[in-house]
Amino acid sequence: MKEIILNQLSANLPDVNVVVSEFSDELTIQVHKKDIVDVCKLLKNDEKLKFIICEDVTAIDWARKQNRFTVVYHIFSLKNKFRLVVKADVDESECKIDTVSSVWRAANWHEREVYDMYGIKFNQHPDLRRMYMPEEFDYHPLRKDFPVIGIEGSLPLPKK
């Protein structure tokens, strides 16, 4: 399966640089964030691959200077019974990545959640609101610099 995915990627998108890694039978491909939509479209629509289920979109905060965040996509192919992890690095200075909600509608809410929790903006997202926290909230709670105990006064309490 690994060969088929890499062959299809290199045949159809020769300009895209793909870094492959494996851990505990899980295949991960890392791409540049400008290519993410093209790669996802190919993975979904290619006849041999058909990754039609977008299981999860999330991000990792590495708490480092360069490429602070990594956006992670878990996609599943019903045809091949195979799960693939797609990753793209996002830097804090340009905290944006293109949305894949045009490829899988399921990504819509996941991306809203990532925006809410990490503050990564998704370009051309149809409805980029916060998922869980109130709109007035100024912070992004799953960032590593947000304290577990919370920030006093960050959430407005109801009036008596």
Binding site: F23, S24, E26, E55, V85
Partner: peptide
Amino acid sequence: GEVYHAVENPKGE
């Protein structure tokens, strides 16, 4: 490392 594991729950995955 990084791991994703899914199980079939009553509500779904």
